[in-house]
């Protein structure tokens, strides 16, 4: 259990000016339990993945993650997630804008519904989207006569990821839009700016950090997404097989090292996105601090 120690020093090392805060009890217990539980559930198992990867030689690792099938799955997972996040950045901004700036009947229900993709289990979303988009489905039937297939190909993957990622953008942009100072817009209006100029020069810079944060979250989630995608993807190797499914395929073939190698690439991506999102949020907080 030596891996249980993360880099937290003894609590006594806190700056003395905060000493009065220690009036509250339970600090050692709470922090101790937090670190213990986190090590048990998150850190040690993740360390197992990293150590397993490090036990491979570089050549083995490289061969495992650069087979054509793996590369195709990475291209699909990253490409589809990026496209879906891009669509969500536009549509999410539009939904957030409409919810914050306009009033219309049923607005509260619409607002609550935005979170549906968070609450609906991914497998349920997956089979529901497949039922709608398949050739005989509610929406698919309108595209079938033109020879356009919405399900069982990369298009289906993108659509599923749009569903999954929408709330990330709406829920990060919405509060910022709500807090945006309307005085600035009015000033711009008084100075003769058109509505379009006001949006691009005044509103857009204010919400840009939040929009990028939402985009990054939707992208990160999309790359790792599994449940909502596998039903609609068709899972054809080299065409519509996502990276998480490659991991499962290798596990089922008892190729633990191969699965670990692909998983470690995805984990590395998770770390990078986590850092990116953190710095985007710091930027957003600074932006908010400036305008306050």
């Amino acid at each position: 259990m030596t891996t249980a120690s993360i880099d937290l020093p003894a609590p006594e090392a806190a700056p003395p000016r905060r000493a009065q805060r220690r009036v509250l009890p339970g600090f050692h217990l709470a922090l101790g339990y937090t670190v213990f539980y986190m090590s048990l559930i998150v850190l040690i198992p993740l360390a197992a993945l990293i150590l397993k990867t490090l036990s491979m030689s570089w050549a083995d690792f490289w061969n495992a993650v650069t087979t054509p099938r793996v590369l195709a799955s990475f291209r699909l997972s990253f490409g589809a997630a990026f496209l879906a996040a891009l669509v969500n950045a536009f549509m999410g901004l539009l939904v957030a804008w409409v919810l914050v700036r306009y009033s219309f009947p049923g607005k509260k229900v619409v607002d609550a519904l935005v979170d549906l993709p968070f609450a609906l289990p991914t497998a349920v979303a997956g089979i529901a989207l497949t039922a709608i988009l398949a050739g005989n489905g509610w929406i698919g039937q309108f595209f079938e006569p033109f020879g356009i297939q919405l399900a069982f190909n990369p298009t289906g993957v993108v659509i599923a990821l749009i569903f999954v990622g929408l709330p990330f953008v709406v829920r990060t942009v919405q509060p910022v839009l709500q807090e945006a100072e309307k005085e600035l817009e009015e000033a711009a209006q008084c100075l003769g700016a058109t509505r379009w100029q006001i949006f691009w020069r005044v509103i857009f810079p204010t919400i840009l950090p939040a929009l990028l944060t939402g985009f990054a979250m939707a992208f990160a989630r999309g790359v790792g997404e599994f449940g909502s995608v596998i039903f609609i993807a068709g899972n054809i190797p080299m065409v519509s097989e996502i990276a998480p499914l490659v991991i499962i395929g290798r596990l089922e073939a008892f190729d633990y090292l191969g699965a670990t190698a692909v998983a470690s690439v995805m984990l590395l991506f998770s770390f990078i996105m986590l850092l990116a999102i953190n710095s985007l949020q710091a930027w957003q907080r600074r932006r908010a601090g400036d305008s306050a």
Partner: peptide, 23 residues
């Protein structure tokens, strides 16, 4: 409370959000 490494700890709490469920 305030303690050294707090923001690092907060980031670690977020970690499972960005890890793929399959991983």
């Amino acid at each position: 409370f305030e303690f050294w490494g707090k923001s690092f700890l907060t980031t670690l709490i977020d970690l499972p959000f960005s890890v793929s469920p399959v991983v």
